[in-house]
Design a protein around this nucleic acid. Structure first.
Length: 419
DNA sequence: TCGACAGCGCATATTG
DNA sequence: CAATATGCGC
DNA sequence: GTCGA
């Protein structure tokens, strides 16, 4: 799901907050929405659309799936481009469509220009160009002009576990369709297609569709039941956008913990293959298998500390395959893990920056005094701050506590920078 | 001028 | 065979 | 893009 919602949130940081030290400057800039200097350039395609479609232009409709596919392809193409900073970014357009229809075109098969105007700034020239082109030509010339090989690369790159390198290699060696890759037996397309890649290719369509909150609620109940039956001393929580109270999620991000695992062992040996059946993760995995929530042929990875695979609500043949990530966390790190993985991303950037101001390093395992060893920042031994709750982390950073439902940097950006 | 921009867990490829 | 490197996602 | 190595 390289160009899905999750990619959106991680890429926001990469491009906007890439340098920690410039964060406060950027924050200040974001608070004051300055008027664009070259409005005529920016709104060019929106204006063009308006003129070409006439007075009734607000009622013109575009196919949600066509617009979504075009924007996702363009964003995928962007990620394949070496110099991204000079290549347009379609995240704003994608966000607008997600806001109206989620990532599932079936939820709202067509969108009117009026709908889109409500959620997409007319200044977003590149996204309006795509809408304009679809209305005028029925297609997006920029994508049609790509070579057959590049179109395949773009499509492959949208698939989970197929990044730039694999996408390029497969297409360069003649692969053109998902079926080509699913049916390949060796390295006839330059590299062997991995198990995880074949799985993602098979369920690619389902994996691009967002999960409604009510469905995550059902997973939550079933997981709770399954783990409780297997071992009531194993605890778990769903993090991510679900914990923030959002109505849709791109995946289900779980943390599990157990009193017997208090500390992270930095030099724990890496076991090959499945986790030992009697280990914490082994028991979790077996509980998930027994409940029909995981299936051994639909796993991306199964390790002692991290398990991810596809899951669907048992007993419903129409239920879609959803990505479920399970992470094992030592109890000492739990508040940090919950905070870090509940997000949102921009809020976490802000918290890390506040930590840095106090010469602290904050990550999903803990917080402690910073010490640089050969270009890498670590915790100074013995300075790690042990906390029992997330609130204590906010306290240490001298910030007001935000409940999970309030953890949106966008909402709080005008308040938080004062602290 | 040039590379990093978090760093870790997992699967898999490559090297010794 | 084991150790190390690479690609990927988060 | 922007910093330090």
């Amino acid at each position: 799901m390289n160009t899905g919602l999750r990619a959106l949130s991680t890429m926001t940081f990469r491009t906007t907050f890439a340098r920690r030290s410039c964060l406060p400057v950027r924050l200040a800039q974001r608070q004051v929405a300055t008027q664009p200097l070259f409005e005529t350039q920016k709104v060019k395609y929106w204006k063009q659309l308006k003129e070409e479609q006439g007075g009734d232009y607000k009622n013109r409709t575009v196919s949600t799936s066509q617009l979504l596919t075009a924007l996702r392809d363009l964003q995928s193409y962007r990620s394949l481009t070496p110099n991204k900073s000079t290549f347009p970014d379609y995240r704003a357009g994608l966000r607008a469509v997600f806001l109206l229809a989620g990532s599932d075109p079936a939820a709202r098969p067509t969108l009117t220009v009026g709908d889109l105007e409500n959620v997409l700034s007319t200044e977003n020239g590149v996204s309006w160009r795509v809408i304009h082109d679809i209305l005028k030509y029925g297609l997006v010339p920029q994508l049609e002009e790509l070579t057959e090989e590049m179109r395949a690369t773009v499509a492959f790159n949208r698939v989970h576990a197929i990044g730039n390198i694999y996408a390029k290699t497969f297409a360069k060696n003649g692969a053109r369709t998902f079926e080509d890759l699913i049916n390949s037996t060796g390295d006839e397309y330059g590299k062997k297609v991995s198990k995880a890649q074949k799985l993602a290719l098979k369920y690619h369509h389902e994996m691009e569709i967002m999960i409604p909150r009510q469905e995550v609620d059902k997973f939550d109940m079933l997981i709770k039941d399954a783990l409780n039956k297997a071992d009531p001393t194993i605890k778990y929580e769903i993090m991510g956008s679900y914990r923030r109270g959002e109505e849709t999620s791109s995946d289900i991000d779980m943390v599990v913990w157990h009193d017997s695992l208090k500390r992270r062992d930095p030099d724990a040996k890496v076991r090959k293959g499945n986790p030992a059946p009697d280990s914490i993760m082994g028991r979790v995995l077996n509980a998930m298998f027994s409940a029909g929530l995981f299936s051994s042929d639909k796993m991306f990875a199964t390790g002692e500390k991290k398990v991810w695979g596809l899951s669907r609500l048992p007993g419903d043949p129409k239920a879609l395959h959803r990505q479920v990530d399970v992470r094992l966390c030592p109890t000492e790190s739990l508040p940090y893990m919950l905070l870090g993985n509940t997000g949102d991303n921009d809020l976490m950037r802000f918290l890390r920056y506040k930590a840095e101001e106090k010469d602290l390093l904050l990550n999903e395992y803990g917080m402690g005094q910073r010490v640089s060893i050969s270009n890498q920042v670590h915790f100074k031994p013995g300075t790690e701050i042990i906390v029992q709750t997330e609130k204590e982390i906010f306290d240490k950073l001298e910030l007001p506590y935000l409940e999970p439902h309030q953890r949106s940097y966008k909402v709080w950006k005008n308040i938080l920078p004062r602290y």
